[in-house]
Design a protein around this nucleic acid. Structure first.
Lengths: 233, 233
DNA sequence: AGGTTATAGTGTAAAATTAACACTAAGTAG
DNA sequence: CTACTTAGTGTTAATTTTACACTATAACCT
């Protein structure tokens, strides 16, 4: 794009882009998928995958395209986060960015990631490198949103395998909410909601009693909400 | 601006604008401030005040400028709502709009409104006229946000006079949440939080027992939150 | 002046929810 | 077969929420 010229003389409107915060979870801490920038500015720095919005796509379509093209992620939960418009947030020119966040099942993703040419890597949320642009600010906002939302919308399941154990689910909530939860109370509450389907299958090759798998029953959940049920952890 | 030509041949990026949803309350139903469009498209239709984002302002600064220039509103609570980017949301050209919502003390505002040249009018939320563009969609999103937020952030006070009675406050919550609230339980709970300052002053010229005024004590509220207190109605 | 009308203001008891807490079961590794 | 590790399960006390009805006071009306 226009390298050195002052943007004011080239355009009378800001450029529009999207950036994507991609969350993953593998049992320990919450993780973020970052890509290494290949170009200036911030060449070789870690950044959120992002790109310009085309004239024939909505910002959400753009975010999904970026997710696929730059991170190899598709068919995942995506939600608009916030629009960042600080005037100097990009040193090249005025760029307004509509940020999105995505929740991916990290295990399923490993497969897809191999096909990707860009250098992409998972980082623990508490051990992020310095990020390009205002991306640290965007990540913070995304985590706040996730933390705030996870208690009253069943979006946590998006981060887990289709089959998961209650301990995994609990660990996820503990990780996002940054609190400890009582095991018995947690199970009582979440099972009491009625949308978790107990499967026959159990864990294998674990050096302890194998835990039962559960799955999130979207149909039942939808029925419940239509009857006025309101998810709340 | 470019009237009839296809935008694709003029620009390679969407135009960026903001639209503002302005809420007010005067004891009955929640109200919305709309302005009548003076130009095509949607000439003489009611619409949210909006306008293009300049190169030297953030979208929030733009929203505040629009609020002042088009609605005569200043120094009010403003929060980013959502960014609307449907490709055909504006018939002229591709315009992405970052929507904001504002909460104003309607009584204080009456004074300011007189200075305004544009035709502006308050409408009850349930009796809105057909709006220009996708503004009905924006209004719905704004109300949803307000409804969701009012229970865990003390933003309701922004819609009331500095001095208010508990009945006014309750009516506001009932109006936003679209539920009935028990008077005694409401007062117990809200007073129990400790950030409402009881004033000496009472209502005047009411044909019944005069109610005591209260005010929202921001200092106390801030202290409380820093001590881990979490507002929740 | 006295009665009417309208809203302010107040407490208690039952029900529901949340929080605290410890042991047995089962699978793998050695 | 023993040790280790995590799964899985109920009860009780504390707290929070809900339901509910009467007296007080200011203006208005006659």
């Amino acid at each position: 794009m226009n390298q050195n010229k002052k943007y004011q003389y080239e355009y009378d409107r800001p450029a529009l882009a999207t950036d994507c915060v991609i969350f993953g979870f593998d049992g320990g801490e919450l993780k973020l998928l970052l890509i290494e920038r290949e170009k200036e500015p911030f060449k070789n720095k870690w950044a959120l995958p992002g790109g310009f919005v085309f004239m024939n796509e909505t910002t959400e379509e753009c975010a999904k395209r970026i997710l696929l093209e730059k991170a190899g992620v598709k068919n995942v939960f995506v939600e608009q986060l916030y629009t960042f418009s600080d005037i100097d947030r990009d040193p090249r020119e005025r760029i307004v960015s509509v940020a999105y966040f995505a929740l991916v099942d990290k295990h399923q993703y490993e497969v897809i990631a191999g096909r990707d040419t860009l250098k992409a890597e998972w980082f623990e949320l508490s051990k992020l490198p310095k990020l390009a642009f205002d991306h640290t600010k965007i990540v913070k906002a995304a985590f706040q949103r996730l933390k705030g939302k996870v208690s009253y919308q069943p979006i946590g399941f998006e981060l887990l395998n289709e089959k998961f154990t209650l301990s995994q689910l609990q660990a996820l909530y503990e990780s996002i909410l940054e609190i400890e939860i009582d095991k018995r109370n947690f199970r009582k509450k979440i099972l009491g909601m009625g949308f978790l389907k107990a499967l026959e299958e159990k864990e294998k090759n674990v050096a302890h009693k194998a835990a039962r798998f559960y799955s999130f029953d979207k149909k039942v959940y939808k029925d419940l909400t239509q009857k006025g049920f309101h998810f709340e952890l």
